[in-house]
């Protein structure tokens, strides 16, 4: 028996918005410690890694490990039926071929359940090596979304360049060039407004706008985003999900000229 009850059901709705453009389907690996999802997009350029710890749920039960293959467009349709203040429970029997979503309104006057067929997915799992990143940049997530959106007008790629002075985002194309420089903030009233750069060595990498823009669909999950870069390895874009876990996106760089 698997059962996970999330009082902040809106978080699950936001998680779905953050992954459904990148992925058509994905396996939810449910275990005693929580729920994990790891899946690449169809072109093998990016990877989504989602971690929801059991402690983040107000009720969590997982008697035996369970892999639930879900069609994300179907799951998204179902989660759209939940109100933002609904409590959401996911449950499944062992070896079941369906999962049930239960939505409870805060005062319990409306309770809905939706049963969805599971699919068998034969997905590649990737071993992601532990990496000490040369540059770790924290910035407001809305600022990052704005930068990606603005620079996408200029070309298909964004160059991210991190030095001890700060971080520079650049794009170039037919209409011209664009550069956005963010300096590390000295003092801020709110921690979530800060730009922080932790740099061991300068790094410059180029990434496809299309994917960066899809990652920014996670913006409503967290006021801050963390970018980790090292020379010639995939970028990591991480959004914390309150006390419950995180969503990380890995993006292979564009290389050569």
């Amino acid at each position: 028996m698997f059962e996970a009850r999330l009082v902040q059901g809106a978080l699950l709705k936001k998680v779905m918005e953050a992954i459904k453009e990148l992925l058509n389907e994905a396996s939810f690996d449910c275990a005693h410690s929580g729920i994990l999802l790891q899946a690449m997009d169809n072109s093998h350029v990016s990877l989504v890694s989602l971690n929801l710890r059991r402690e983040g749920f107000d009720k969590y039960r997982c008697d035996r490990n369970l892999v639930m293959g879900m069609n994300l467009s179907s799951m998204s349709k179902i989660l759209k039926c939940a109100s933002n203040d609904d409590i959401i429970t996911m449950k499944a029997q062992d070896n079941a071929d369906t999962v049930t979503f239960v939505f409870e309104s805060p005062k319990q006057e409306k309770i809905s359940d939706y049963e969805m067929k599971l699919t068998n997915l034969d997905q590649d799992h990737l071993g992601i090596p532990e990496t000490e990143y040369s540059c770790v940049i924290k910035l407001p997530s809305a600022e990052f979304a704005r930068i990606c959106r603005d620079l996408s007008q200029f070309g298909e790629s964004i160059v991210i360049s991190c030095t001890k002075e700060g971080v520079k985002f650049s794009a170039a194309g037919d209409i011209g060039t664009a550069n956005i420089k963010l300096a590390q903030t000295a003092t801020v009233d709110k921690e979530e407004d800060a730009v922080m750069v932790d740099m061991q060595e300068p790094v410059t990498l180029t990434f496809a706008c299309k994917y960066l823009n899809m990652f920014t669909k996670a913006t409503p999950l967290s006021p801050q985003v963390c970018l980790s870069m090292s020379p010639d390895v995939p970028l990591v874009v991480e959004y914390k999900i309150e006390d419950i876990g995180h969503i990380r996106y890995y993006l292979a760089p564009r290389i050569g000229d």
Partner: peptide, 14 residues
């Protein structure tokens, strides 16, 4: 023009 690399060049299938 820079070419898009694949994640499979960096991470191993497990």
């Amino acid at each position: 023009m820079a070419k898009q690399s694949s994640l499979l060049n960096f991470f191993n299938r497990s």
